[in-house]
Design a protein around this nucleic acid. Sequence first.
DNA 1: TGTAATTTAAAACGAACGTTCTAAAACGCA
DNA 2: TGCGTTTTAGAACGTTCGTTTTAAATTACA
Lengths: 199, 199
Amino acid sequence: MARPREFDEEAVLLLAVERFWEHGYEATSIRDLAEVMGLTSASIYNAFGDKRSLYRRALDYYVDHSFGDRVGRFEGNLPPRQAIEAFFNEIVARSLEDTKRKGCMLVNSALEVAPHDPEFQRVVANVLVQVEAFFRRCVEAGHRDGTISNGQSADDMARMLLGMLLGIRVLARTRPERALLEGLIRPAFALLDSRSDAH
Amino acid sequence: MARPREFDEEAVLLLAVERFWEHGYEATSIRDLAEVMGLTSASIYNAFGDKRSLYRRALDYYVDHSFGDRVGRFEGNLPPRQAIEAFFNEIVARSLEDTKRKGCMLVNSALEVAPHDPEFQRVVANVLVQVEAFFRRCVEAGHRDGTISNGQSADDMARMLLGMLLGIRVLARTRPERALLEGLIRPAFALLDSRSDAH
DNA sequence: TGTAATTTAAAACGAACGTTCTAAAACGCA
DNA sequence: TGCGTTTTAGAACGTTCGTTTTAAATTACA
């Protein structure tokens, strides 16, 4: 009943993600996006609305396919202590092979967009709460089966792991050095392992 | 021999710092700066060169008066273990009273400017190296006088503290909650205290 | 007091910004 | 085969960008 789209919406959204991810919101123009996505600006506005709406779609896509995917792969499929370790090992590995220094789009968004936009503030905060909850579930399970030290509360341990995660993401963006990132997580893991009955 | 400046260079630089700090590089225009600094764009260009040069001056000013000042106040004046604690307590306090959510200008710069600008990459990386070195000196001194556990190497401990610092700075920008930030550092301090001979 | 030097104010520069408009093109259905 | 509808391509909208220019104002020194 009408002329059909000449592009796949998810495919071009992925291209928009790449661009926003690497250059951020302000430094990415509609013309940049049009070139990268292989569309005219009219098509972009027709399919996604304005620039902010497209960025929102891109961020949601990123969150679902990075963090969401990671939690889904590890939680339940691995013992809690190993799930945490696998999570951080993957973050470190990704950070070290991130030659374009894109970092984590959620962290980028947390610093560039969220502070001045209540909607994005809510979105980013919500994801961070979910990450924290994932860590807390892992630590609680580890407490129950004795594979994680109960020297610290699961709440505090989860908070620390969340802080470490964000710290790695920032640090890797300017100093992507293996010794630094791997050395950073060693004390944190030592804390997971240290036996409380040794005190 | 010529018409004198009508403004104090350091005073207007501080105003530029505030603006860049809160809104970042891209989202701050020369006209914004001119209004905030109370100058015309011609005066800005005459005194500071182009926008990027002014941002560089602003970042240097920020680094000297925040991190540089903090290290100078704590190191030497406090025992190593207390120096680290005072450092983090001040970071948490500043983060909680940061109602404008400006965060840390160095971290903001690390994510917005440094990845696409080799000069700023070098500047930011250099400061992070200095922060790490400050932590390492504290941990080494604590190892010597027995106030810090030697369960972890000073190198790794300093790396972890650097990661925690950056993590707090990011987290506080979207979730400035006292329980979260204070809970985050508790396990890290526990690691400083845990006695290695207990294993 | 006149001259050289510098800073001001304000307008102006071309380029790029986000967004919209105008037509032509491409489909399903009558 | 037309009709209604949507998507295309590309020009165009007004605004804002970083930066420079023009000319008046202000000083120290001869």
